[in-house]
Design a binder for these strands. Sequence first.
DNA 1: TTCTGTGCTAGACTTTGTCTAAACGCAATA
DNA 2: TATTGCGTTTAGACAAAGTCTAGCACAGAA
Lengths: 142, 142
Amino acid sequence: MKQEQRNTGLDRETVVRKLREHGITPTQQRVEIATVLFERPQHVCADQVLAQVNAVESLVSKATVYNTLGLFAKKGLIREVLVDPARLFYDSNMIPHHHMYHTDSGMLEDVAPGQVQLGALPEVPEGMVIEGVDVVIRVRRI
Amino acid sequence: MKQEQRNTGLDRETVVRKLREHGITPTQQRVEIATVLFERPQHVCADQVLAQVNAVESLVSKATVYNTLGLFAKKGLIREVLVDPARLFYDSNMIPHHHMYHTDSGMLEDVAPGQVQLGALPEVPEGMVIEGVDVVIRVRRI
DNA sequence: TTCTGTGCTAGACTTTGTCTAAACGCAATA
DNA sequence: TATTGCGTTTAGACAAAGTCTAGCACAGAA
């Protein structure tokens, strides 16, 4: 794999710092993937990340993309979004928010948390903690 | 395929009526599948339905199970539940409710709608309607 | 230098779900 | 009774997302 920096808005140092802040050892491959993820706020699946990372030249393998996305999600750098039964999406926007999913087009939109009033959550069983609350508003053409 | 009735709580006529009420032609296979789904309120994936339907003798093919579950969901007889990235679950309980998902065990629990106060929903784009709002509370062991 | 642990990789593999082409079933018609 | 037609079912091939395995590379410690 090459050492050159990808031409992007986010510089390498910022990405490396971000990884370190989340307890992730910043390897070449992880930095490449993180750079793609944070180029712009977006919803992506593993396949798209793989394609974007390797767009110019082959930098990262499929296994590493899957492993890395899983690691990033576990470490709280990105968030899994379950809307499409066929594939798992990842959201690089960690500011709390919900989603609106267009079932006919597959489009996924962010919904500001203020736009959905989520009140009292139910009791959580003893010894359990809430990992997250996902709200997905499914919409379609009339 | 055999004509015998499965030994269950719900009788065939009730199931047939239920299918008709949802505009579904009640074929032998569809009745078998619906019977399994409504034996008790439960969350099942296609694989489990396939196994349960064919537990005693081969009654329904894989393709038909998948097609039928899709049809039932489209017609509003059952509901798709997206919690596990690896497989699609179906919920035969159509009374509005939410879900609590145990990420470490894969267990899926119902949450009464009253336990989550969902307030004002966001504006829906022109020409679109809300198909449903899914709330999933992900919990895990401390 | 050798050992140990972590990360990366190609490619095989698994699993869920879809597709296809043929056969079936049943009702309506002749 | 035979025929036609349409929706349904089927076995098995297929597709696609994601996981696993075994080996290699590299860095730090002994």
